[in-house]
Design a protein around this nucleic acid. Structure first.
Lengths: 350, 350
DNA sequence: CTGAAAGCGCTAACAA
DNA sequence: TTGTTAGCGCTTTCAG
């Protein structure tokens, strides 16, 4: 962008300015096309009330001048912006994962389609967007930044939160059915004849990890299997802790015959540890993960897992936010279904 | 943002408008503080020429009104923006990886520090930023979008490209010394007594993969070992192809005693395959990766690897772009060093 | 140190 | 269908 031109633009000043940077505004286009700036504006905004001829003239001029309208002037004059914000918590565990990237993919791609600008904000839970710079914001989970969400809601900014079913706030959320997904996983194991089923949890600071744990418990309960506290090991989603958890499970006097692991990346580690101890997956122990991380396709055995529609979650978030921005009043809490992906890491008990 | 107020704002219209949305502009603040809008502007922009008392009054009013200036009006009036663009190619192989996320982390964090807005653009190689909406742009690699870079350069937008040493364009680039890193890896292996050293490459569409291959060849050459074409297997960075490549290597009549793998995630797969075949890492075959992906810490053996400073690369990119925006004229091509991280997957030959 | 007023580039109401 | 013109909310000159 060019710097402001001083007011007393006498001839010399004009020429100096001109030689460095041509104004390149809608005005130049109008001049070159021989029409008024209004007409140019109309063409830019694809309003129908322009004759074919004028439209052509303007389009030519635009091309010749390589003109593009100033988004700032547009936003200011229109009184609205096409930008949306994406707030991602700077919470290592979450950010490091497969999760964030997939979400960004879904969101970024759809923003392109809707011609919205995507403003990324890696939040440490303190700084905020300028309320006026975005038409709405998407919160990727709300681990450490609930207060920001509340602020945005107070400012009346359309919001949608992802990966978290928010029931105590009037806000749209797109989450996935972790409970159901986990329950299905466990039931699948039970269907295979397993009774000694363990669960390695994720970081219980996150809602997802809690829900998966809940789903696990429900699955066990419904099959009238009594819950064994030794079979539930809490971790922070890291592979390191997955290793420790697996070893703990293996050292039990009565080790499980199947383990439901809260994430694929941990499940991979679990498989590794089991094989190191000379046992087989799924021969001796069945393993089921969660996420459908592409990584889980390779490795010793292709991992049976629960697929969560991350990209779709991102896309739905953009769609919902878009409706909200366009004036939709009622919020929606969408819960996306998961899908059991059967591969090779589970086996019927013999 | 509020909608435009119609021109004929007679009393009733004013009241109606008012009751829905207060104007909340700099003007309101001025009124409440009992000063002119100029003074308010001065306080907002932290100009020194304001008396302590007025400053206080304005700050109070700002707080009371929960006022924040319109970034659009500011950008328009100042003739400049604080936003920078980040273009990430929608190239699956790249985007899926650890790489993109780390980069975003570095960039996002530093943008926060510099108070710059980060506009994310997932590029399919076609659509572009509006030149006027950003003060500069960072290209995360240029696999499929060289033309966009050239366009931006033509438009005189400050640019810096990451992860790619660009020698044929007048553009700043922050890259890493893949050649040196790969060479060091190979030399380390040679120092351990290995002579039969293979290399599983990355996707040679990327500069990084090519340079790693080149470094491998150099390392071999300098040790006067003759290059064995069977020892170089090309892949696309995927774990699937890493598996195939490893099997190929293992089936050679004279299998290598060490393998330099172009990425950690592939190296992990290589280790897995080797162990499946009943061989040991590093007992039978030494493995060295590239990336220092945190994942490589766990698994069968902690992976010896070459660390690349991804976060730093992102940070340097932001810094460089910032200087460019501030008027720096000369470009800089920074090549960041790698670091050999010795862990457990390599062993001296006996 | 302060304030009036002229823009920044564009949109939209209104009149032609 | 077109052009004139008054803003959008802020910064910056210039004259106090």
């Amino acid at each position: 962008m060019q710097a402001r031109v001083p007011r007393n633009d006498d001839y010399l000043e004009r020429m100096r300015t001109k030689s460095t940077k041509p104004k390149n505004s809608i005005e130049e286009v109008a001049k070159l096309a021989g029409v008024s700036i209004t007409t140019v504006s109309r063409v830019i905004n694809k309003l129908p009330t322009v004759t074919e001829e004028n439209r052509r003239k303007v389009e030519d001029a635009v091309r010749k001048l390589r003109f593009s309208p100033s988004p700032f002037a547009q936003a200011l004059a229109k009184g609205k912006t096409s930008g949306i914000g994406l707030v991602i918590p700077r919470y290592e565990g979450l950010f490091y994962s497969f999760y964030a990237l997939e979400l960004i993919r879904g969101i970024g791609t759809l923003c392109d389609v809707f011609k919205m600008d995507l403003l990324l904000h890696l939040s440490d839970g303190r700084s905020n967007f300028n309320a006026k710079s975005v038409a709405g914001v998407i919160f990727a989970d709300i681990i450490t930044n609930r207060s920001q969400l509340e602020w945005a809601l107070r400012e009346n900014i359309p919001c949608v939160v992802i990966n978290n079913y928010v029931s105590d706030l009037e806000v749209s959320s797109i989450s996935i059915d972790n409970v159901q997904g986990a329950k299905e996983a466990v039931k699948y194991l039970i269907g295979l004849g397993h009774k000694k089923i363990a669960h390695i949890t994720g970081d219980l600071i996150s809602q997802a990890a809690n829900q998966r744990l809940e789903g696990y418990k429900l699955g066990i309960q419904e099959a009238k299997i009594k819950e064994n506290p030794d079979y539930i090991i809490k971790t922070d989603y890291s592979r390191g802790q997955a290793r420790v958890a697996t070893e703990k499970l293996l050292n039990l006097s009565e080790p499980p015959t199947a383990i439901f692991v809260a994430s694929d990346s941990m499940a991979l580690e679990t498989v590794t540890v089991i094989m190191e101890k000379g046992k087989k997956v799924p021969g001796d122990i069945s393993i089921i993960g969660f996420d459908d991380n592409p990584t889980s396709l390779y490795g010793h055995v292709a991992l049976t897992t629960v697929r969560q529609p991350l990209i779709r979650m991102g896309e739905e978030a953009v769609k919902e936010l878009n409706s909200l921005i366009k004036g939709k009043k009622d919020i929606t809490r969408m819960v996306l279904p998961t899908e059991l992906v059967v591969r090779e890491s589970c086996k019927a008990i013999s």
